[in-house]
């Protein structure tokens, strides 16, 4: 286990508490809480990076197996959210994304060690790295989509509650969703292509496997969403729902990959 695991975990826990506190604590200056949360998350991100770097120094690729892929996903989710939180007022999304990041990180570190899934194949490494990065960014988009749906329902029902008041504006959440998908989609596309090539070359899984079919469905959903956004102004609630559907399919692919890792298939 990497030596910085307890430090990283503690930092994630602090960031997590502060992002959740922002949502629930009533009489705390919001600004200072937000910057405190961001600093804690920044430190957690850095510590997690050292953690991943330590594995690399020991000759392991960051996504050498499903276990490490989980850790890598959580690190990228954290990075993507951090990056976006400087541009948009989205700390409410942090209350969802940061705990998820922490859970994934803990799951990765506490799950049993696994054999390398894709050996030392360059194509395999590129595929898994990019697919992981894409899913991590889609996870942030999904977080934004969930918050959007809750806030939207409250506003429509004339009950703008605590979440809407402490949260981000609907338009900001939709922008976060759009930007994340714009960022994650090209990575995911290259991952699909390299994955196909890798599958054909290594004869590991067929192009027509369930995993590949579901991954293709994810790609089609996000491609459709991007096109619909540009052409017919597809946005708001429907875009949030499609994002969640796309993310669910991407998670299924990840789960299959993880299950294979665990079973050693």
């Amino acid at each position: 286990m990497p030596p910085l695991f307890p430090v990283t975990l503690a930092l994630y826990a602090v960031a997590c508490t502060l992002y959740l506190a922002h949502l629930w604590v009533e009489n705390t200056p919001v600004g200072s809480l937000q910057s405190g949360a961001r600093i804690a998350l920044g430190l957690a991100f850095a510590s997690h990076a050292v953690d991943i770097g330590w594995l690399c120094l020991h000759g392991m690729h960051p996504v050498v197996n499903a276990r490490e892929a989980l850790s890598f996903v959580s690190w990228l989710m954290c990075g993507a959210f951090l990056l976006i939180s400087f541009r948009l007022q989205v700390s409410i999304v942090g209350a969802l994304v940061v705990p998820a990041t922490m859970v994934l990180y803990v799951a990765a570190r506490l799950s049993p060690s696994q054999e390398a899934l894709h050996g030392s194949s360059l194509l395999g490494n590129i595929h898994v790295t990019l697919a992981t990065a894409g899913v991590a960014i889609f996870a942030v988009a999904a977080g934004a989509a969930i918050i959007y749906l809750i806030e939207e329902r409250n506003l429509k029902a004339h009950r703008p509650g605590r979440l809407s008041k402490h949260g981000s504006a609907l338009m900001t959440l939709d922008t976060l969703n759009r930007r994340c998908i714009l960022l994650g989609f090209p990575l995911f596309t290259v991952a699909m292509v390299t994955g196909a090539l890798w599958a054909v070359r290594s004869h590991t899984t067929g192009l027509f496997s369930a995993q590949y079919a579901i991954a293709t469905a994810t790609w089609i959903l996000y491609a459709g969403l991007l096109v619909a956004r540009q052409t017919v102004g597809f946005r708001g609630r429907k875009a949030a729902l499609v994002t969640l559907l796309g993310f669910a399919t991407a998670m299924i692919v990840l789960l299959i990959y993880f299950a294979r890792g665990v079973s050693g298939a």
Partner: peptide
């Protein structure tokens, strides 16, 4: 004012409308 929510929510129809607009548009 800074440590409690006593003055944070709007107390008139007009200011509530402004708040709602901000919750939609930022």
């Amino acid at each position: 004012r800074t440590e409690t929510d006593v003055a944070k929510s709007s107390a008139s129809i007009a200011s509530a409308a402004v708040d709602l607009a901000e919750q939609i548009f930022g």
